[in-house]
């Protein structure tokens, strides 16, 4: 869907993007991650053709990106903004028209989304008359009112209450099921885990990693397992002997424990289970996969160490 190859951008000799390449596939939700100032917004602005890259190419469905492709993109910037004195419906129609939609279709589409987000009654109100959350909804609708194929959302969940966060997340899933492609730039790692298929991490103007969310997490596995059991903690520790390392333990009460164990040598989960069986009563075993938050932190701190 979108192929970004070796894109670089600098502002007054300060490098904002350094040969970044990304590949966003059709119909996926793609997480664009990175700390503040990493270059995400610059990249998003380049995709939206708000600014031009100094180097590199962007292809949309295999074709070099041009003005024509802007109609196929919907954009929700991090810094929200609407014309405060303009009516809700009027504003949505205006923005849809700017993206190439006819007035008639724009009105139809805007009304559809207003109804869907339960703010149809507010369509005649001016933005300045709406609550912040309501205005956020209008802004979200503005990004997709012209029925784009690619939706670029910069921090779409900020400013929403938990109820509306769920509403937006469900809407994103629904859009995905309709075949829309979504690029999601966010610091909300839970949402990345929940809805993103793939993600890329940008740090200090460079891409650090790009893969499926599962692979990114799996790549950071450290061979740790959490085991819930009932029995004697000493018997459990003795059973580990030198082949396994007890990382952490927690008493759950009623002679039940939760322990985190790391493999040593070439030992596998089966070896651990064999060692434990007969010593304690195993209730649950789960491999510990790092959260996206941990992946994010690990990748960045790893890079910092490397740079140091």
């Amino acid at each position: 869907m979108l192929a970004i190859t070796d894109v670089s951008k600098s502002f007054n000799r300060k490098l904002a993007l350094d040969a970044v390449s990304l590949h966003v596939q059709k119909g996926e939700i793609y997480g664009l991650l990175g700390p503040n100032g990493a270059g995400k917004t610059t990249l998003i602005r380049i995709i939206n053709q708000i600014i031009e890259a100094n180097k590199g190419t962007l292809r949309f469905d295999g074709k070099l990106m041009s003005n024509e492709h802007l109609r196929l993109i919907g954009y929700l910037p991090e810094e929200r903004g609407l014309y405060k004195s303009m009516g809700v419906l009027e504003q949505l129609v205006f923005l849809a028209q700017l993206r190439g939609m006819s007035k008639e279709n724009a009105v139809k589409s805007a009304n559809f989304w207003l109804e869907k987000f339960d703010i149809k009654d507010w369509s005649k109100k001016r933005i300045e008359e709406l609550s912040k959350g309501m205005a956020q909804k209008v802004q979200f609708i503005a990004a997709l009112v012209h029925e784009p194929d690619l939706l670029i959302l910069d921090e779409p969940l900020s400013g929403f209450d938990p109820l509306n966060v769920e509403l937006i997340l469900n809407e994103l899933k629904s859009l995905k099921s309709q075949g829309k492609t979504i690029i999601l730039s966010t610091h909300n790692m839970r949402s990345v885990e929940e809805i993103c298929d793939r993600a890329a991490l940008i740090h200090h103007s460079k891409k650090l990693a790009e893969d499926s969310v599962w692979n990114l997490r799996a790549a950071q596995k450290s061979g740790e397992f959490s085991i819930r059991f009932s029995g004697n903690m000493i018997a459990f520790a003795n059973a580990l002997w030198t082949d396994f390392e007890l990382i952490d333990k927690k008493e759950l009460g009623d002679n039940r424990f939760l322990a985190v164990v790391k493999m040593r040598g070439n030992n596998q989960i089966n070896d651990l289970l064999n060692a434990l069986m007969g010593q304690i009563k195993i209730e649950a075993v789960e491999e510990r996969i790092p959260t996206m938050q941990e992946v994010f932190m690990n990748l960045i701190s790893g890079k910092e160490v490397e740079n140091a």
């Binding site: 602005r45 939206n48 053709q49 708000i50 003005n67 802007l70 993109i73 954009y75 910037p77 810094e79 929200r80 903004g81 609407l82 014309y83 405060k84 923005l95 700017l98 993206r99 503005a142």
Partner: peptide, 16 residues
């Protein structure tokens, strides 16, 4: 005003 209420970024994503 367009700059301060940040609508300009949305507009510039559609027009030069």
């Amino acid at each position: 005003k367009e700059k301060s209420n940040r609508i300009v970024e949305v507009i510039l994503a559609s027009v030069k």
